[in-house]
Design a protein around this nucleic acid. Structure first.
Length: 446
RNA sequence: GGAGAGAUGGCUGAGUGGUCGAAAGCGGCGCUUUGCUAAAGCGCUGUAGGAGUAAAAUCCUACCGGGGGUUCGAAUCCCCCUCUCUCCGCCA
């Protein structure tokens, strides 16, 4: 059964992708400055075959010109024939002549489409180019600690991992979640459910305060949307898919939110557009194991508020800094120690030009947990999703830059909160900023 | 889920095989007139790709919801899909 679907899926998003879906990197940039692209990609330490892409591009342009020449002939003949009375010898002769041209055009066009398809596939393998400010490096160890906040040595050295806290299982019922759904789908009970709701409300209120407009998006998306943000076709196995409608449960609110403006042209004066959205997030995360996945560290379903911006290209790096600061502020208000990593070239994602990770310190596990990832995509996503603005000076549509980051992901923030704030009496102190949302000053496991 | 009607440019809306990238109107931009505003008159006003240029100019091609087909030629004919609207059914 499964093998049938890729073809059907292709049809589903074929409309969106007619000419642009592979064109994630600017084809003109590649054509005109291949060495710039080559050098930039090298900083990501990815292995790509640029020469093949360039050769396909050249072949495609040559074939395009042949096809267009034949089409031109057809068009000219068409105009001439319109003036001719039907059935005259000239008309009949023209039909015969054009039959041959038509056949030739069809043949060349098939070849052109074939080349184009290969070129698109090759273009899809090209990543976005890292920004000049991205540090060199190949592995996560080479990420730069950009900033730290709070004192982790002030926390109790006796702190335990949150899953070892007495009564943890009553508030976060993984066993029953596994029975009812599967591993990684816990029930949150009593104060467990209450703290999740409090955090979400706190995050959303703070984000709105910071200038983001709240959105409640659909939590299933179609194939075209998943393609535009890059989940398809590569990361298909990481999403849950519904039968028989073939919708995808969102892995992050980024997907429906980014697609909000898909195939649209925004007025320049409306930029920047800032939005925040809470959704549950669903991730299959096949192949994970070990202590990384214990307790609340990694779940198949979790709650997250996402921040998203559509901005003018000239401002996108300023906006990235502001985005990071908006996410940081939440951690500061929760009084959680954290650090900010500036990702090196080798640890940057495929689509990002620059990325900061926010990691909160979990005193019991004695490790940093990623709770937000703030990225600039420049025009990479916008090109794929065709999200543009109309430039005031030229009147022409230009691609926007998109950015996103979490603000924030609940379970890991919660894990740090439980581990760092556990009192000797077994209760968890709720930070002052959150207490009004939680309704009391301590969380209890009783 | 059942029945019917639709999908055309920023919007409204003509167009049923050829000279249609597409009438007309609205909106937008520019100019003229005007003390200012309003009104009027005239002109311009889609997107993408390619060629071309120092950059323009200019030229070519594609696009009338999406895909496929018929034809020398498709917005127009045929098939499939998606979406929207109306009515019925069901439902929080």
């Amino acid at each position: 059964m499964r093998s049938v679907w890729p073809a059907q899926k292709f049809c589903l998003f074929a409309g969106l992708v007619t000419l642009c879906w592979a064109a994630m990197l600017d084809p003109k940039l590649l054509r005109e400055s291949p060495e710039v692209v080559r050098a930039a990609i090298a900083r990501k330490h990815l292995d790509v075959d640029l020469d093949t892409v360039l050769a396909l591009d050249a072949a495609w342009r040559a074939q395009l010109q042949e096809v267009e020449a034949l089409r031109g002939q057809q068009k000219a003949a068409n105009t001439a024939m319109a003036a001719l009375p039907k059935g005259t010898p000239e008309f009949v002769a023209k039909v015969a002549e054009m039959k041959a041209v038509s056949a030739a055009a069809k043949e060349k066009d098939t070849a052109l489409k074939d080349t184009e398809e290969k070129w698109k596939q090759a273009m899809l393998t090209l990543p976005n180019l890292p920004h000049a400010s991205v540090p060199a490096g190949r592995t996560p160890e080479e990420n730069v600690v950009f900033a730290t906040h709070g004192d982790i040595t002030a926390l109790s050295p006796q702190a335990v991992p949150h899953w070892e806290i007495g009564g943890f299982d009553r508030l976060f019922d993984f066993a029953r979640g596994a029975k009812v759904t599967g591993a990684g789908f816990p029930f949150y009970v009593g104060d467990g459910a209450r703290i999740v709701r409090a955090l979400l409300q706190f995050f959303l209120d703070e984000d709105v305060q910071a200038g983001y407009t709240e959105v409640a998006p659909p939590i299933f998306v179609n194939a075209a949307s998943a393609t535009a943000t890059g989940q398809l076709p590569d990361k298909e196995g990481q999403m849950y898919e519904t039968t028989p409608d073939h919708l995808y449960a969102v892995p992050t609110a980024e997907v429906p939110l980014t697609n909000f403006y898909r195939d649209e042209i925004l007025p320049e004066e409306s930029l920047p557009v800032r939005r925040c959205a809470y959704t549950p997030c669903f991730r299959r995360e096949a192949g994970s194991y070990g202590k990384d996945v214990r307790g609340l560290n990694r779940l198949h379903q979790f709650d997250k508020v996402e921040l998203l911006k559509w901005v003018h290209p000239a401002t996108s790096y300023d906006e990235l800094d502001k985005l990071r600061d908006d996410a940081e502020r939440l951690l500061r208000k929760l009084e959680l120690p954290y650090r900010v990593l500036l990702m090196c070239g080798g640890d940057l994602g495929f689509a990002q030009t620059k990325k900061y990770d926010l990691e909160v310190w979990a005193a019991g596990q004695k490790r940093w947990l990623e709770v937000s990832s703030c990225s600039n995509f420049e025009a990479f996503q916008a090109r794929r999703a065709q999200i543009r603005y109309r430039a005031r000076d030229t009147g022409k549509p230009e691609l926007v830059h998109t950015l996103n980051g979490s603000g924030l992901a609940v379970p890991r923030v919660l894990a740090a909160l439980l581990e760092n704030n556990l009192q000797a009496d077994g209760r968890v102190k709720i930070p002052a900023a959150l207490a009004p949302y939680f309704g009391k000053e301590y969380l209890t496991f009783g």
